[in-house]
Write a protein that binds this DNA or RNA. Sequence first.
DNA 1: TCCGAAATTGTTAACGTAAACATCGACGGA
DNA 2: TCCGTCGATGTTTACGTTAACAATTTCGGA
Lengths: 328, 328
Amino acid sequence: MADVARLAGVSSQTVSRVANGQPGVVESTREQVLTAMRELGYRPNSAARSLRYGRFNTIGVILFGLSSTGNSRTVEAIATHAAAEGYAITLIPVGMPTQDNVLGAFTRMGELAVDGVIVIIEVHLLDATAVALPPGVHVVVVDSDAGDRYPVVDTDQADGARQAVRHLLGLGHRTVWHLSGPAESFAAERRASAWRAVLEEAGRPVPPVEHGDWSADSGYHAGLRLAGVPECTAIFVANDQMALGVLRALHERGRRVPDEVSVVGFDDIADAGSYLPPLTTVHQDFAEVGRRCVRSLLHQIHDGPAGPGTDLVATRLIVRGSTAPAPA
Amino acid sequence: MADVARLAGVSSQTVSRVANGQPGVVESTREQVLTAMRELGYRPNSAARSLRYGRFNTIGVILFGLSSTGNSRTVEAIATHAAAEGYAITLIPVGMPTQDNVLGAFTRMGELAVDGVIVIIEVHLLDATAVALPPGVHVVVVDSDAGDRYPVVDTDQADGARQAVRHLLGLGHRTVWHLSGPAESFAAERRASAWRAVLEEAGRPVPPVEHGDWSADSGYHAGLRLAGVPECTAIFVANDQMALGVLRALHERGRRVPDEVSVVGFDDIADAGSYLPPLTTVHQDFAEVGRRCVRSLLHQIHDGPAGPGTDLVATRLIVRGSTAPAPA
DNA sequence: TCCGAAATTGTTAACGTAAACATCGACGGA
DNA sequence: TCCGTCGATGTTTACGTTAACAATTTCGGA
C-alpha cells in the first residue's frame, strides 16, 4: 500500500480511501491511484483489515461428514448466502464424532479467524463443549435439540414423519413399520417418535423398530429382516439411502413394491425419483436451512446475541411410485 | 493480551512466549500466565498473527456445486488433511459456472485471507481468469487439463474408462455403447475418448454417443433411447447417477440387467452397491485426490512455486452384479 | 568476593490498514 | 481585501502479535 502511495504520489490514507470507495477523493487523484494499484498488482491485506476492524467477515462451519447428502447441501447453501453478504466460510471437519474431537474442533475454532460458528453436529456431543465455546463467538446449531441453549435451525423432522405415516395409513395399511437411523441420532429419534405418536394416536399396533446407520447397506440388511414378516405391508424408512437398500432387499425376496409393500423414505435426495420404483419420500429443504442459519448468525453478529429458540423448516411429502393402497 | 500480561504481572512478550510454547519461561511464570489466560478467557487474535507472519494458514477452495458426490468427498479430504497440517479451509462457491462468476470468485479470492487455492472447476472456464490470479497465490487445479499451466491433480479418467470397456469386451460383448456427460465437461470428454480408443484399437464398431447432464434423470431418458436398440447389450455410463437412471429405463422397457444388457458406471458412489442390480463401476479415490491436492499446495507454499504437471490418481474396476457375459 | 556466562524477562519496532484529527488551498461573501 | 467555510489530502495513532535486541537476575567458579 505504501508502494502504491509512493507511485501515485499520494499518501497511504488516500490509497485507503480509493480502495474502499470512500468519497472525498477528486477524480484525477483516484485515477492515478487506481493506475498505480494495477501496475503494482496491489491487493489489500485482509489480515490487517481484520485487525483494524476487529472482524473477520468469516463464518466457521463445524461438521461431521461432509459427504452425507444433507450436510453438503446445507453447507452449499450456507456458503452461497454467506458469500452474498460478504462473508467467507471456513470449514472445520470433525473426523470421528467423539466428544474429544468435537472439543478439539471448538478449540481450534477459538483460534481461528471467525466471527461466528454454525454447528452441524448431533448435539449430545456438544454437552461437554458448551463451556469451551469462546464467549465472543456467536453460534447457530443445526439438527439438534440444543434449542434451550443456542438458536437452532432445523428441518421439521416430526412433521415430515407424520406426513409419511399418515400417507401410508391413508392408503389403508393396518400399521406402518419403521426403519430408524442410529440410536444416537436426534434426527432419527425425532422421526421415530413422531412415527410412534401417529400410530398410537390412530390406535394402531406399534411394530418393533429396526435400526440402521443411514447407509444403503444397513437398509438392505434391515430390509431382509422385514421382508420375512408377512404382515408388514408398509415401511417408513428414516432416510432415502436406507430406503434404497430396503427396496433391493424386498426385490431380492420377491416382495413387490408397491403392490405388496409400500415404502416411504426421508430426504428426497436427487436420485430418489430414479429408484426402482421411484421413491415416495419426505422432501427436506436443505437450502432453506442453510439460508436461515446464515440469516440468524449474521443477525447475531450485527445486532448482538440472540436467545435460544428453534426455527423449523417445513417439509413436504413427495408421492411417487413406491406407495400404493394396502393389498386386499 | 495486554490484560493478561497485567494480571499475570509480566510483559506481553512473555505472554506471547507462553501462548506459543516457546522455551525460556520459568515454570512458575508460565503457570501465572496460564492462570491469567484462563481467567480472562484470552484467545489469540489470528488476524494479528497473520499480519505479523505474513501468512494466513488458510487454503481456499473454489468450486462449482458442492453437492456433487465427487466434489463433496474431495473437499472433505482436503479439509481433513489441511487441518492436520494446521491449515483451515475457506470455501468459495461459484453459483453458476459462467466465466463471469468464476472471474468473480478469483477476484474475491484475491481479497481473501488465503495462502493458496485449490480450483475444482472445469478448466475451460479458467481461460480468461488466468490473468486475474494474484501472483503471490499458489494454485492447484483438480479435474481439468490445465496441466500445462498449473499443477493438476486428477483421477486417471482414461484408465478407468479403459478398464470398464475392456471388462465389457472381455465378457464377449461385440461392442460397448456409451452414455457420456455434458459436452463441456473435460472429465466426460476424457472418459469418452478412452472408450472410443479402446473400441477402435479392438477393431469394434463405435456406436453413437449419448449425452446426459450427470443426473439420474438424464440417464433415464438416455436409457429409454438405448433400450430401443436391440443390438445394444453393453453400456458404459460416465457416472453412477446416470447409470441408476439407465437401470430404471431398461427395467421399465423389460430389458433385463445383466442378462440382456450389461451396465458399467463410474465413481463408485456409496449407493452403487445397492442398485438393482448392484452396479459394476469404476472406483474413484476422491480422498486420495484431496490428499494430493493439499500436499502439492503446501509444498508450493513452503518451498516455492511448482511447475505445471499432472498427478494422476489410479482407479479400479469394481465388478458387481450389473455385468454378465453377452447373451448368446 | 567478584566476574562472566547463562537464563529469564522486558522494551522497541514493525506487520498493513483506517479512524480521527490536522493541514492546506480555494472559493464566496462582506 | 480579508475571513470563514468547505473540500481535498496528509499525519498520527492504534489494532494484537512477535522478532530482535536490551536489561536484569542468577549462579558457578576462581
